[in-house]
Simulated scan of single mutants.
Amino acid sequence: MTDPIRRRTGGRSARVREAVLAAALDTLAADGFDQLSIGAVAARAGVHETSIYRRWKTRDRLVFDALLEHSEQNLPVPDTGSLRADLIEFNRSLMAIVDSPLGTALGRVMAGGEDDPEFARARAEFWRTRLEAGRVMFDRAVDRGELAAAPDAWLVLETLTAPVHFRKLLTREPFDDDYAERIVDLVLNGLSATPGPSSPE
């Protein structure tokens, strides 16, 4: 036999999962969360609804899994060798996500009004998972001697990312080229290192 052996990469289950998660994100971007249904996702992915229900059980669990997958692929935790560079790269990636059409839809889902209990739990789990992933940036900084002790990672990440979401969802201002750097430097240095207005004599 001279033909090379063809090896399966991932298998059918992995391909179905990938297709369904991509279809969920596409449907979310096109129709919004309120109009997203298992049937619409199944039709877009080319699978049976029962395949989705069997794996994800509910629409909210499907959306959570799609959000987490998208976040892991498009908002990786940097490892540049310095805390400042890590945080700048992290915020730049976040800005790229929220500035995209899909990111806009995802932001509206996350910032939506009323939550049913299932989606509230899924959203809390999403942020807990992202926090645990981001915490390593501070742990590495401690190991390198950049920080004396690990800070409150949740508070630092909230402070870093809140201005990005504020501009996107509230003021609608465009992101400046150095916006990520200015946010990171403000957080790392604090207001004490920022020159204030001169006092009148």
Rank of each mutant, 00 (worst) to 15 (best):
S13V: 09
H48L: 13
L21M: 11
D31Q: 15
A66V: 02
T58Q: 07
R8F: 02
G10N: 08
R55S: 03
L21W: 08
R6D: 03
R15F: 02
I5H: 04
G32F: 03
S13D: 14
A24L: 07
W56E: 05
D3T: 13
R8N: 12
V41D: 07
R15G: 04
R8C: 07
V16F: 03
T27Q: 15
V41N: 11
W56I: 01
D65R: 06
D31C: 12
R7E: 08
V20I: 15
F64E: 04
L21V: 08
F64W: 00
A14E: 12
G32V: 00
L36V: 14
A66H: 00
E18S: 15
W56Q: 04
R17E: 07
V16H: 01
V16G: 00
V63W: 00
T50A: 12
D3N: 06
D31R: 15
V47K: 13
F64M: 02
R8H: 01
R12S: 10
L36I: 10
A19Y: 00
R17A: 02
D34H: 01
D65V: 06
D60W: 06
S13Q: 13
R12C: 03
A29M: 09
L68M: 10
S51V: 11
G32P: 06
S37L: 07
A45C: 05
L21F: 14
A40S: 15
A24I: 09
S37D: 10
D3S: 05
R44C: 02
D60T: 06
R8V: 10
Y53E: 05
R15H: 11
L67G: 00
R55M: 05
S37Q: 08
D65P: 00
A66F: 00
R59T: 11
A45W: 01
L67C: 04
V20N: 09
A14M: 01
F64C: 02
L68H: 15
R7F: 09
R8M: 11
A30M: 14
W56P: 04
I38S: 02
R8T: 08
W56N: 02
A30T: 15
K57E: 10
L21P: 07
V20Y: 13
A42W: 09
A19S: 15
A24M: 14
Q35H: 11
I52E: 08
A14S: 07
A30V: 14
L68Y: 15
I5S: 04
L28A: 08
E49D: 11
V41E: 09
A66E: 00
A24C: 15
R15M: 04
A45G: 09
A22K: 11
R55H: 05
T2M: 07
I38Q: 05
R12I: 13
R6I: 04
A66W: 05
D3E: 12
E18T: 12
L67V: 02
V47A: 15
F64I: 00
H48V: 12
T50H: 10
R12Y: 08
T50C: 01
I52H: 06
G39Q: 12
L68W: 14
R6S: 05
E18L: 07
D34T: 07
G32W: 07
W56S: 01
R7S: 03
R54V: 05
A43F: 03
R44V: 08
L28N: 08
Y53H: 14
A42P: 08
A23M: 15
I5G: 01
V16A: 03
I5W: 01
L36Y: 13
